[in-house]
Design a protein around this nucleic acid. Structure first.
Length: 300
DNA sequence: GGCCAGGTATAGC
DNA sequence: GCTATACATGGC
């Protein structure tokens, strides 16, 4: 059964799903996208005034419900005041231009654990290969969800990854992300040393969440900021990668107070730039960063 | 082959 | 603190 969901604010489904923040959406070729959200396999496309979607679970397609609507609204951050965010971001002329050019590019609210693993795989990697890595890791759950002919794997819990073992991860060829990193992170979550849901609470400030994440082996400032922004509701987090550095340089942000790193970027350089960005772009600095990332990346 | 891709940990100063 | 370097894998 196809279900319609009204979305009243600026929204570009394809751009939001494919710009490189989330890695489990595949085009089905007819304007629809297939993706796994928790225990649900979603087929979705944009229509006038919102989206229409179908949903499947372990036993195949089922009727959508109000709670599925809620799941999608939450994922798309429909609860944000998008126009207010855009107005706030438009204090900067470059971001203002990008917002006008790409309206409706939302920051998706991803699952923290999956987001952490995905960005742990992002070191010196390409978006296509991160997606490939994530699908490989998903297969470790051995739990499928179905919708018609489409069969996908649920993303494994930290406990399932620990159970699968370090050797299973090694076989997946995760590149610079040593298998040990994902495995160690899974262990930290398993034993409760890293409680991602607690970090998502409003009372936990961005910088505190980031500090906690950085205590985890294999997680540095870039990944910590990504996880905070895209899964822990800290829209002021500001991940700095080589594309953001290029954007800051290309659009001359040195002239707006940004202190660029001299050579290779140290954790202190990252903290300095993130602090500047939070002052300069404001409380939605992460959204500004997402626009800079999209604006600077080739092959759009 | 050489270079690059959403970085991080480590060892040397 | 800062800097250089190793790290794993695949595409162009």
């Amino acid at each position: 059964m196809t279900r319609e969901l009204a979305l009243t604010q600026p929204f570009d489904l394809e751009l939001s799903l494919t710009m490189g923040q989330a890695f489990r959406w595949r085009p089905l070729g007819d304007g629809r996208f297939s993706g796994v959200l928790g225990e649900n396999l979603i087929h979705i496309r944009q229509i006038e005034g919102g989206v229409e979607y179908r949903v499947g679970g372990p036993d195949g397609e089922r009727d959508g419900s109000d709670s599925d609507d809620g799941l999608l609204r939450r994922y798309f951050r429909e609860d944000d005041d998008v126009t207010a965010i855009y107005n706030d971001l438009s204090r900067d002329p470059v971001v203002a231009r990008l917002v006008a050019q790409y309206p409706g590019m939302r920051v998706l609210r991803q699952e923290p654990w999956e987001c952490l693993v995905a960005y742990t795989c992002s070191r010196r990697n390409t978006i296509a290969r991160i997606a490939h890595n994530i699908e490989a890791i998903a297969s470790l759950s051995q739990r499928t969800v179905k919708l018609g002919d489409d069969v996908r794997c649920v993303f494994p819990t930290a406990a399932q990854i620990v159970r699968a073992g370090e050797g299973a991860l090694k076989d997946l060829r995760l590149g610079l992300n040593r298998p040990g990193n994902v495995f160690k992170a899974a262990n930290q979550v398993c034993i409760g040393a890293l409680n991602l849901d607690a970090l998502a609470e409003v009372k936990v400030p961005c910088n505190e969440a980031i500090r906690t994440l950085e205590d985890c082996p294999g997680i540095g400032p870039k990944i910590a900021n990504c996880v905070a922004m895209m899964s822990l509701d800290k829209l002021d987090a500001f991940p700095v990668d080589i594309w953001i550095l290029r954007a800051l340089e290309r659009w001359q942000y040195q002239n707006r107070g940004c202190q660029m790193p001299r050579n290779t970027m140290s954790p202190n350089d990252h903290r300095r730039i993130a602090s500047w960005a939070q002052l300069y772009f404001g409380k939605y600095a992460g959204c500004a960063g997402q626009y800079l990332f999209h604006g600077i990346k080739p092959n759009k």
